[in-house]
């Protein structure tokens, strides 16, 4: 075990996969000599050279399209989308091309491409550099979606994403890059679709991921003093989603709250709530609560930004309401 930063863990995953498989290459804006805007790929250009680490023009559709095209003929490319918001410029290549290929070829051709996207809010980056767009990809059949919340999971999930036969979207939260975690000396690919219990509890299940997971854990700790025992789950993969982890937990707690930074409307929380309501109704003893980002673009002012995304206090408030069984959770803000 050693302490490792989240970004460095991803870099290790990339390097180890590139060493293992010559068909793995990296492509993106300023990821080579500059090492990436968040420094994740620092050192990889020097180590693997310009034939494995491609610095590109600012051309997102061509970048993702080139990766998908190379994957069609044998490569396993890893794309970095500098800010996840810019993936809007490459949506055709992901949604209409990569996501459809395996299906529309009757399983004959896979697209083993990994798309790493920097996501989430971090200090007034405002409307075009701070969004959480994971729900779009969760909604698109043919894509898989992972959202690691710590360094060890990040390393394992990136490795699994690269080896997966399907296109996998990896969401990396900006505020997690600076975080350090204990990481085993050797990390194997973490199978997609395996969540984990981050904190055990009896009264209510909270599902959260990426940076919001830590707000949920903070809320859980505060509520312990109030005598509310909170179980916190991190699904780690959003597609596939670990249903068994959720049902095992609900069997114990009977109550569910989902928290994420992305807007509430049509968010991943809606899907998780629907899974619980449709498939685990007999385990539920209280209405389901969502604590999510507001249905607004991300504002610039720090106090507005903080107002829009959920923090520990709001999650705690939601948990109290859920435990009381009172639908006061949609308090006007």
């Amino acid at each position: 075990m050693r302490k490792l930063r989240y970004g460095a863990a991803i870099a290790e995953a990339l390097a180890e996969e590139m060493e293992r498989d010559p068909e793995v290459f990296l492509i993106g804006e300023d990821i080579g000599e500059a090492g990436g805007v968040f420094g994740v790929t620092r050192g990889l250009f020097k180590k693997f050279g310009p034939d494995r680490v491609f610095d590109t023009p600012i051309s997102e559709e061509a970048i993702v399209g080139a990766a998908v095209g190379a994957a069609l003929v044998g490569a396993r490319p890893v794309v970095e989308v500098m800010f996840g918001d810019f993936v809007t410029l490459a949506m055709d290549m992901l949604v209409n091309q990569a996501a459809k290929t395996s299906y529309m070829t009757g399983g004959r051709i896979g697209v083993p491409v990994t798309v790493r996207m920097v996501t989430g809010t971090a200090g007034s980056t405002a409307g075009q550099h701070s969004q959480s767009l994971e729900a779009w990809f969760v909604h698109t059949p043919g894509l898989k979606v992972v959202a690691p919340s710590n360094a060890a999971d990040a390393k394992g999930l990136v490795k699994a994403a690269i080896r997966d036969p399907d296109p996998v979207m990896v969401f990396e939260h900006k505020l997690l890059y600076g975080r350090s975690d204990q990481v085993p000396d050797q990390v194997d690919p973490l199978p997609l679709g395996e969540g984990r219990v981050v904190r055990e509890g009896e009264d209510v299940t909270v599902v959260s991921y990426l940076h919001t997971l830590y707000a949920a854990l903070e809320a859980a700790e505060r509520l312990e003093e109030e005598g509310i025992s909170v179980e916190v789950l991190d699904p780690r993969s959003l597609v596939p989603f670990d249903r068994r982890l959720l049902s095992d937990s609900l069997r114990k707690t009977g109550r569910l709250l989902v928290a994420h930074e992305a807007p509430r409307r049509g968010g991943v929380g809606a899907e998780i709530a629907a899974i619980a309501a449709e498939e685990m109704w007999d385990l539920l003893g209280a209405p389901i609560t969502r604590v999510c980002g507001a249905n607004t673009p991300m504002p610039y002012a720090p106090e507005l930004e903080g107002f829009v995304i959920p923090d520990a206090a709001r999650i705690a408030e939601g948990i109290r309401a859920t435990v009381k069984g009172s639908p006061g959770r949609l308090t006007p803000v």
């Binding site: 061509a62 993702v64 080139a66 998908v68 095209g69 190379a70």
Partner: peptide
Amino acid sequence: GGIPLATGAALQKKRE
């Protein structure tokens, strides 16, 4: 839609 895909396939052919 096919133009970036051919570009990527060409990249892979060049690598090979």
